[in-house]
Design a protein around this nucleic acid. Structure first.
Lengths: 156, 156, 156, 156
DNA sequence: TTTT
DNA sequence: TTTT
């Protein structure tokens, strides 16, 4: 079924640190914002204008741990994933909506943290490197397998 | 400046007709929702689950007119563009947020309307065909040029 | 390591049937050509010109079998993968070069064969459906895992 | 017409300097190789293997000049474009084939040359910045317009 | 021929 | 909230 495509590709800078959430079953999730810029020349005034867009990025499990380990605020990263609309009840009882990028693949373009970090984190679909620092390299080569798990058991 | 990338690529079906808005300066905008599906097998229950994501697509000017002319509810389309977060004041005074895909390129994958429609609509960056039915083919080949205009003069 | 990206995305029609090759170890590979079109208006003459580009697509294992089962000449397909340059010795002793797209993900946009076919075939990185007709649905959801295998043991 | 998609996206390092060719009509073209890496763990031996793929990148006109000005060997760049197969007669009379990436968009991820360089070079489809150093900013914002010109008058 |  |  399906015959559809839902793909987002971003290159941008982290606006904040990776925030981790750990679940009882052992899974985890990391969240961080990425900024992309758009610059153009206003035709009326001739001045250059820069707009920033902020994107809510969500990474899971092994991939989340690698992001937390190597990425920090200000780092540049390539991120690939799916657009996902999420809604939840705000504290005031109103329904809130947000759009997230659920990461399937990423690669570090700069990192301020430890040096051997720049691993391509793959969506399982190609044979690129995962964290060499991993204890389980064989498994680490499909880290985002867990990204694709059913979400029905995750409390968020 | 910049060194960033903000790209979305969708293949999905229109959930509604293209809604046009015309501006005083002569510009226009078309909006329509696209559905993409995600299907997976719930590991606990073994049953197949399908989720639908809805995406707010925005097209401008010449490209909007072509979409309105050839696309209708249910049609399948490929759409490429930028993720853009927009906020506005709701009627209740609260700030509302939404995420849109601002189209830079598209191609029809099925259309129920007139037949010679399936044109690749390009972001100006490649030499693909625009609507052959256009009266101004030379211009029509860069229809989304107008998509990239400064937005500061547009009342939305 | 890495920090690189190698991605190709095509929507086009099959120029021929899927040709399968089976290996001793149990693996297999499918090959087929995809045509994409580029159309533009010649500025000198004002006439519309269409060029066709042919792409050599390679799919592996489970994914290859699904393609063979559901795709045939003329079908439209979305294909995503990596660009790979391959060289081999021609029968005349000269070195031959070709560029292939090694598929990581695909989705059928039309199929002439059996109807329940249109499955999104995923690179293992997202939770989309694989062939529902599969005997091993749990495994079938990472069909292109095998696409990412080391190639050093494959005689082609 | 069409309804097809032909898109390549690469992040990699330049293996050589940008080689320019100037044509009589005033147009020009720049060529350079980009390397992407693929790393995986050989399941048999457990060792990590890295393969490098080389891609022939072609940029035109204004965009080519910006690449030549700011990019040099070893720089990292994001490049987006079309796959194009080209054939020509070799000096030995044999037909040669090569596959090129015809650039529609790019952004510098590192540059060794002058500092204010990192401009997003756009395919005309979005409103990002072009070279601020340009004398003609308004025009420079669609530099790759020229990339999409008919090629029938270009001697290569 | 690049990079880590 | 990032970056140039």
């Amino acid at each position: 079924m399906s015959g559809t495509l839902n793909k987002v590709m971003l290159i941008g800078h982290l606006g904040d640190e990776v925030k981790m959430h750990y679940f009882e079953g052992g899974g985890c999730i990391g969240r961080f914002p990425i900024a992309t810029n758009e610059t153009y020349t206003n035709k009326q005034t001739g001045e250059r204008v820069t707009n920033t867009d902020w994107h809510n990025v969500v990474v899971r499990n092994k991939a989340a741990e690698i992001c937390e380990k190597y990425l920090s605020k200000g780092d540049k990263v390539y991120v690939e994933g799916r657009l996902k609309n999420r809604q939840w009840q705000g504290e005031d009882g109103n329904t809130r909506y947000s759009t997230e990028i659920q990461v399937q693949d990423f690669t570090f373009l700069t990192t301020k943290k430890e040096s051997m970090a720049n691993n391509q984190q793959n969506g399982g679909g190609n044979s690129q490197a995962a964290a060499q620092s991993s204890q389980k390299p064989a498994q680490a080569s499909q880290p985002s397998h867990s990204v694709s798990e059913p979400e029905d058991d995750l409390p968020f």
